[in-house]
Structures are given as structure tokens and as C-alpha cells.
């Protein structure tokens, strides 16, 4: 067995442990998750919120717990929810969210309290077109003309929407800042993959994004905020253990490097590239 195989195996074991026996490492809620939660909670009754699904099921493991928790929170609030997005997998992601998240719809009625528009192609121009005309798709995901849906009668442009949320793993927050917030004043919040958190943080710190739910960890925090612990909380156990291993490996690697350097046993580095 090669050294890298041992590392893969160790990582797999550390990740598997919490799923076999949850540990329950305490989760502290970060300010950006709390800001996100408080903003949604403080929305006036009847406010419209647009949830843009800009990721596919490939990101489900990381963003699923946060998506489930936020959707459950939105459905618990007295607001109108409009679901759309730039991901072709939106129909599957939405059904998966409701089913896997065991979402309780409560008194919410389709067409009166929430509507699924379906996905729109075209990236940022499509986001701009949707902001300009919320009836862009003419019909909802299930083929019902939007003019026949009661909730859509008062929703015409992004100016009628209080908040737009994006579930994303790229730089989609910039689309909504440029096409929704700048021209219409719609507030922007994001559920973001850890890969792009650092970039999106710039807009959060500058106050242009009101809150961020950061990947699996943020999902766990949100689950605790809505008092519905789920896969996110178990996931943070896994994250803590796997990171512990990686930090340990980094320390061991650096000690070995320093030892070889000072004992003169270090082999010269091979030249790479052309």
C-alpha cells in the first residue's frame, strides 16, 4: 500500500466515524448566518422572496443541509416564495429538497404562497431579464400560465421583491448585486459553497450582501437557528474530524521537511515543466 493510499483510507475512516456514531461537537452560530436568519425573520408579512437555485445536485452534499433549512424557514414565514435559478437541475433539486429535507409545507398553498418558475438559461443576462420581468417564463415549471396564478398577479419586477437569495458555488452573487440590488434595491443573500466564500465575503463585509450561509457548516448553524437539527449538524462532526487529520498531516509533513533540511538528508527538488 502506497503512502497516498494510507492517507485516503485514514481520511475515509475519519469521515465515516460521525455517520456511524455522531459525536455532537458544539456548533457556534457565526454572525453572517445570524444576519441571514434575522433578515428573513424581520421581513414584513406578504413580502416576496425569490430563491435562485444556481447549483446542481453535485453540490447537494455541501449545500443541501443549508438549502433545506432555509427553505423550511421561508415556508414557516408569512411571505411569498418564488423559486427559479440558472441550474438545469433546478426541478430535481427542488423536489429533492422537499423530499430529502422532509419539508413541512404547513398551510402553504402552491400558487398562493409559493411558485416554482423553473430554470432560466443565459447566466447574468437571464438574471437581468428576470429582474425586469418576473413573468419572463410565461408559465411555471408545471405548465400553468403565470397570469392564472394568484400569487404572480402583484409580482411584476424585482422592485416588487424584498429579497433575492442564491444557492451558489460560483460568483452568481455578483449577478444579483449588479442586476437586482443596484437597479431595483432588492436585498441579496447567499447560500454559498466554501470554495467561493472568500470572494463573496468581500460583498458581505461591505454591506452589499445582508448575510451568508457558508456551506455545510452554515447549514448546521441554520438548522440550529430554526431548531431542526439534521444532516448539517452531523456534517460538522465529520468536518471537524477530517480537518483534524489534515492539520495533523500538515504538521507531520512540515516536521519531516525541517528535519531533512537541518540534517542534510533532503533530496534536491526535481525541476518540473518545460
Amino acid at each position: 500500500m502506497e503512502q497516498r493510499h494510507i492517507i485516503y483510507l485514514l481520511l475515509a475512516i475519519m469521515i465515516a466515524i460521525p455517520y456511524i456514531q455522531p459525536i455532537g461537537i458544539p456548533v457556534e452560530t457565526s454572525k453572517m448566518t445570524r444576519d441571514f436568519y434575522n433578515k428573513l425573520k424581520s421581513l414584513p408579512e406578504g413580502s416576496a422572496v425569490v430563491l435562485m437555485v444556481d447549483v446542481g445536485l453535485g453540490s447537494w452534499v455541501e449545500l443541501g443541509p443549508a438549502t433545506v433549512a432555509v427553505v423550511q424557514h421561508l415556508l414557516d414565514l408569512p411571505i411569498k416564495l418564488l423559486v427559479s435559478g440558472g441550474s438545469a437541475e433546478l426541478p430535481v433539486v427542488w423536489e429533492y429538497t422537499l423530499e430529502q429535507g422532509n419539508i413541512k409545507l404547513g398551510d402553504n398553498k402552491y400558487g398562493e404562497d409559493y411558485v416554482v418558475l423553473g430554470f432560466i438559461t443565459g447566466g447574468e443576462p437571464a438574471a437581468a431579464a428576470l429582474a425586469d420581468n418576473l413573468h419572463l417564463t410565461k408559465e411555471d415549471q408545471y405548465g400553468t400560465p403565470l397570469e392564472e396564478i394568484p400569487m404572480m398577479k402583484d409580482l411584476r419586477t424585482a422592485a416588487d421583491v424584498k429579497v433575492v437569495l442564491s444557492i451558489m458555488a460560483g460568483t452568481q452573487e455578483e449577478w444579483y448585486l449588479r442586476q437586482w440590488r443596484a437597479p431595483y434595491g432588492t436585498d441579496v443573500g447567499i447560500i454559498v459553497s466554501a470554495v467561493t466564500t472568500a470572494l463573496a465575503m468581500t460583498y458581505y463585509v461591505s454591506g452589499q450582501i445582508f448575510g451568508m450561509v457558508n456551506s455545510l457548516r452554515g447549514g448546521a448553524e441554520y438548522e440550529l437557528l430554526i431548531s431542526k437539527p439534521g444532516k448539517g449538524v452531523v456534517g460538522t462532526d465529520m468536518l471537524s474530524l477530517s480537518h483534524l487529520l489534515l492539520v495533523g498531516l500538515l504538521i507531520i509533513g512540515n516536521i519531516q521537511l525541517l528535519y531533512e533540511k537541518f540534517s542534510g538528508t533532503r533530496k534536491p527538488e526535481e525541476k518540473t515543466g518545460g
Binding site: I15, S59, V61, E62, A198, G235, L239, S242, H243, L246
Partner: peptide
């Protein structure tokens, strides 16, 4: 330091995704 932080975020994301996949193998 910023690139290091960004790389750490990538590792975080990778571990999150790997975790969900491994969950299906041990349950």
C-alpha cells in the same frame, strides 16, 4: 495568506462533499 485561506476553503468544500458520499457507503 489570502491564497492559503482560499485553498483551505477548497479543502473544506472537498471534505464536505466527500462526507456526504461516504455516508452512503457506511449506512
Amino acid at each position: 495568506a489570502a491564497f492559503g485561506g482560499s485553498m483551505a476553503s477548497n479543502v473544506n468544500s472537498f471534505c464536505s462533499r466527500l462526507g456526504g458520499v461516504i455516508e452512503t457507503l457506511v449506512t
